[in-house]
Structures are given as structure tokens and as C-alpha cells.
Design a protein around this nucleic acid. Structure first.
Lengths: 168, 168
DNA sequence: TCTTAACTTCACAAATTTGTGAAATCAATG
DNA sequence: CATTGATTTCACAAATTTGTGAAGTTAAGA
């Protein structure tokens, strides 16, 4: 069996793996992610090693190196994959950790923060004593609450996770 | 003062209100929402009554009735605005409730559910005993955990909210 | 029932986004 | 330091998305 076959995570039926990749990517797209990053992420997630090279990704998704490059740049900015230079070769590997989702969630928190500051401006410019200002204050309070809760939730997840899956 | 002036939420400086609307909409867009729905939602959020007619929205955002129509259709599908027929007139009003964000969050939960089922398929097709399968199982477990936590969080929010803002 | 204001749908034009090939850049090895 | 395999950047073409005007529906009031 060629190494290319291993690449896509094809210890199993490559057909159904690809079906998963495309299906899951489509869900991510629906949630707002760009298509190519979504496909790359899904491909990595379904690989046995959890890491693929640029060439393997291109092969597996039938896209150009340029497309892979753009996608992994985006994904690593979002902390959804990490890049590692293989010491022996001049290839680069892109990797997902199963807990990388925490980082993604953390990133959503950054979005929340920006919403919050936009709302604060809104309250300021509309006046805290106007009906609109009050509505926005409440919205703001909601987001602040959610923020705090998410932090606490992640703590609980780590505990839960350790109980179920063991340490790291 | 004309009713048109009231419409945009212009008991205050229309300039800075519009600046908020566009700024907040831009944040929503960055989080994945389409532009027009985002602008409409922001406009409603910044109106004193919390509700505007189609014509008022078009005026305030400088867009055609068709664009408003498309945007509010999307927003009501997402449960982010409710539509109400004014009994006296043949106009329709679109309304945000300050707690409408819960609905939006609930909608995100629906997305999570779809992710979960996609992951379950993935585990099935890759095999639960493969490395990739195990990674996906853990991811799946994470989402299931988050799901449950969000429900609990909303309960706590209702309590918190009542303490700070009073009942409804 | 007829009229008419208001909203919706549809086809299309404009603008934006997406992915490619080719050239440029980078870095590991001889 | 030259070579060469690998990735990134860039300009462009294709595809998709977005918003408009105009025609089509719907329902309130005469």
C-alpha cells in the first residue's frame, strides 16, 4: 500500500472517508467557515495521524498547493491547526489536536469581546437612559455573562475529560 | 419632528447611531452573518421601540424593499426577529426582543447538533478503534458536553437576569 | 368586488469571493 | 554557495453572492 493511500486516512474505505470529509466541511461552512479551510480541517480530523503534509492535502482534496497554503494560513491564525517542520525533510506538516476545539472556542470568545465593545459604544452614543440604550445594556450584560460562563465551562470540561479519557 | 426621524432611533444623533449600526453589523458579518441581515438586525437593536417597518428600514439603511424583505425573511427563520402585522395598517413591523439572543444561541445549538451527527457518522465509517475514530469520539464528547452546559447556562442566565433587571 | 398600499418574487447586473497557474521565495543538503 | 524540493505570493478567470428594478401577490378599506 502506497504512502499516498495512508495519507488520506485510508486504512479504511477512502470512499466513505471522503464522504465524511465533504459532509463535515459542509456543516462547518454552514456555520460560517470558508470552504477550503473547512475541507482541510475535516481532512486532518479524519486522518489517523492527525497530521498531513501540504501535498497530501492537495492530493486528498484535489486542489492546488496554493489553495492548501491559503487554507492552512487561515487555520493556524485561528489556532485550529499547528504547523510543524519535519526535521528530516523540507516538507511541512499540519496537525490538529483533538483538543484544538478549545482554541477555536476561545477564538469565538474574542468575537464576543468585540461584540461587547461595539455594544458599549452603542449604549454610549444612544444614551444609557433611552429605551434602545437599556435594551443594549441588557444585551451587553448577557454577553458578559456568557463570557464568564464559557471560561468556567472549559474548566469543567477539562475535569470531565480527564475522568473519561485520561490525562493530557 | 417627523415620524421618519423617530424611525431610525433618532431621538439622538442620527450620525452616531448609524455609525453604531454599521460597526455592529460589521462585527456580525465577521462572525459569519450575511451583510444585509446583520445591518437590519443592528438597526432594529438601536431603535427605541425595538421595532421598525420595512419602509423605515429601507430608509434608514438606504436599500430597496427587496433587500429588506430578504433580510427579514432570513432573520425570522433564525428566530432573531419576530414579525407583527399592525392591526390598523397594512404595514408589517419587525421586532427584536432584548432576549432574542437566546433564540439565536439556541439556533447555534442546532448547528452543534448537526456537527455531532456528522461526527457520529465519521466515527462509524472510520471505525471507533482507529486513531482517527478515537480523536473524533473525543471531539464528539466535547460537543455533547458543551450542549448540556449551554442549557444549564441559560437557566443560570434567567436567574441572574431577573436579579439584575427584574422579571419578564 | 374593486382599488391600492405593502410586501414578495424573479431575472439580471455588479461586486465580491474563490481557486488556479506561474513566478518568487525559502530552506535543507551536497 | 549552488541546487532543488517545497511553500508562498500574485494576477487573473470562474463562480458565487448580493442587491436592484420590475412584475406579481396579498390583503385592507371603500
Amino acid at each position: 500500500m502506497s504512502e499516498a493511500a495512508e495519507a488520506g486516512g485510508a486504512g479504511r474505505d477512502p470512499e466513505s472517508v471522503s464522504k465524511f470529509v465533504e459532509g463535515f466541511a459542509a456543516q462547518l461552512v454552514e456555520a460560517g467557515m470558508q470552504r477550503m479551510p473547512a475541507r482541510v480541517f475535516a481532512a486532518l480530523l479524519s486522518s489517523d495521524s492527525g497530521s498531513l503534509t501540504s501535498a497530501e492535502l492537495g492530493e486528498c482534496l484535489q486542489v492546488s498547493p496554493a489553495a492548501v497554503s491559503g487554507a492552512v494560513r487561515y487555520l493556524s491564525q485561528q489556532h485550529m491547526v499547528s504547523r510543524e517542520r519535519e526535521p528530516g525533510s523540507r516538507r511541512e506538516r499540519y496537525r490538529v489536536h483533538s483538543n484544538q476545539w478549545y482554541e477555536a472556542l476561545t477564538n469565538r470568545e474574542a468575537i464576543l469581546k468585540r461584540w461587547e465593545s461595539a455594544l458599549r459604544e452603542g449604549v454610549a452614543s444612544l444614551g444609557a437612559d433611552t429605551p434602545a440604550g437599556r435594551r443594549m445594556s441588557e444585551t451587553l450584560a448577557f454577553f458578559e455573562f456568557v463570557d464568564g460562563e464559557i471560561t468556567a465551562m472549559m474548566e469543567r470540561w477539562r475535569v470531565h475529560r480527564e475522568k473519561v479519557f485520561g490525562s493530557p
